[in-house]
Design a protein around this nucleic acid. Structure first.
Length: 358
DNA sequence: CGATTTTGACCCGCGC
DNA sequence: GCGCGGGTCAAAATCG
């Protein structure tokens, strides 16, 4: 499985580099290419060309490298990071406002975007892998339970804060609200939650920015996090801060009877007292990788992952998901606005079927 | 003794 | 301008 996925990745990467070189040859405008990578201009033309290019042309350009144990282990994370950046660049025109004023607003929104996680827990705080220091507690209006304020203490000056409060209606539910971006590498135990909240925040922001009238696209979250039931995550643009709520208190089984735990292959389970239902967070974490969401450092720093962790996160995801190619195709299709691929490979515009079948 | 928690004071934005 | 509520500060208390 790993070999197949690695082969698919190598094939995609080589084709992308090949097309990049073609693009470089065809254009005389140097500001289209910086350091061998596409720069945002127009409408992500490089990524679109990559996705829509004829299969024959691509196949003539570069044969997939044979998959050997050597090149399995030789694939360094920087390559994955490069692909991640390229995919991410293709998303920039959609996520980045075109003028400075809009960009300033977007950055302000990034800082204020919040991700709220509802989980059943008897503990006073869920264990999300980070270290927190309590700096305040207040009684909130309409809730007999106090709200506690914590800031991240894993690094000096880390701006991430969270609020913890019990639900007024059901006190067995703990509501944890995260705000901000970690300015330091995260331990493995903190990756699932950090990545999940980062992905959810990006869903929120991309959804809010994709329509001028401020109306959320209700299908966006379901498309980007396809293994989450529609009732699991909700978006809110209500003041004062845009918030996305991940409800981990409900049954997360989807319409096909599949549980997100199918993404947990090879991952350690941990359901200790007071701990987050990590199987769900891990599923969101893995799925979010393929949507290109966690690689959002370039578009305003909404990711809670340190840049040095993003490449390794992708390779970890490759080893964790049994259907990498399909997930990648779905993610790319979401980036370029096409419908997700169906099982019968009926959409030739997304990726050539020979590669897709890998 | 340093780190963390507690808790009242303070600041600020918002609605009236 | 005023009051309210959310959020933060910082001194005191507590913990290990």
């Amino acid at each position: 499985m790993l070999s197949d996925m690695n082969s698919s990745y190598t094939n995609l990467h080589n084709r992308f580099i090949s097309l990049m070189q073609q693009q470089q040859n065809q254009t005389t405008e140097h500001d289209h290419i910086v350091n061998g990578k596409a720069v945002e201009k127009g409408d992500g033309v490089v990524a679109r060309k990559f996705m829509n290019g004829p299969a024959a042309e691509v196949d003539d350009q570069q044969e997939p490298e044979p998959c050997t144990p050597q090149n399995n282990h030789k694939e360094p994370d920087p390559d994955a990071s490069e692909l991640v950046q390229l995919l991410d660049r293709s998303q920039l025109p959609r996520l980045n406002p075109s003028n400075a004023a809009d960009q300033a607003n977007a950055e302000a929104t990034m800082r204020k975007a919040r991700v709220s996680v509802r989980a059943r827990s008897e503990a006073h705080m869920i264990n999300d892998g980070c270290q927190w220091r309590k700096y305040g507690q207040k009684m909130a209006k309409g809730n007999p339970c106090p709200r506690a304020y914590y800031r991240c203490t894993m690094a000096l000056g880390c701006p991430v804060r969270k609020q913890v409060q019990r639900c007024a209606e059901d006190r067995s539910i703990l509501i944890t609200t995260y705000e901000g971006t970690h300015s330091h590498p995260l331990p493995p135990a903190a990756m699932p939650m950090a990545s999940t909240t980062a992905a959810a925040a990006t869903v929120l922001l991309s959804g809010s920015m994709s329509s001028a009238d401020g109306v959320m696209n209700p299908n966006l979250l379901a498309r980007i996090l396809p293994n989450c039931s529609s009732s699991m995550a909700t978006l809110s643009a209500s003041a004062p801060f845009p918030t996305v709520t991940l409800d981990l208190t409900r049954d997360t089984t989807d319409n096909n009877g599949n549980s997100p735990s199918q993404f947990q292959l090879g991952q350690p389970q941990n359901f200790g007292s007071g701990q987050l239902p990590q199987v769900i967070a891990q599923a969101l974490y893995n799925q979010s990788k393929f949507s290109g969401l966690q690689m959002s450092q370039d578009v305003g720093g909404s990711s809670q992952l340190h840049p040095t962790q993003q490449a390794s996160s992708l390779s970890a995801a490759i080893t964790a998901d049994p259907n990498f190619t399909a997930a990648l195709a779905a993610a790319i299709s979401s980036i370029i606005g096409a419908a997700p691929p169906s099982n019968n490979n009926s959409n030739p515009n997304i990726i050539n079927s020979a590669t897709y079948n890998q």
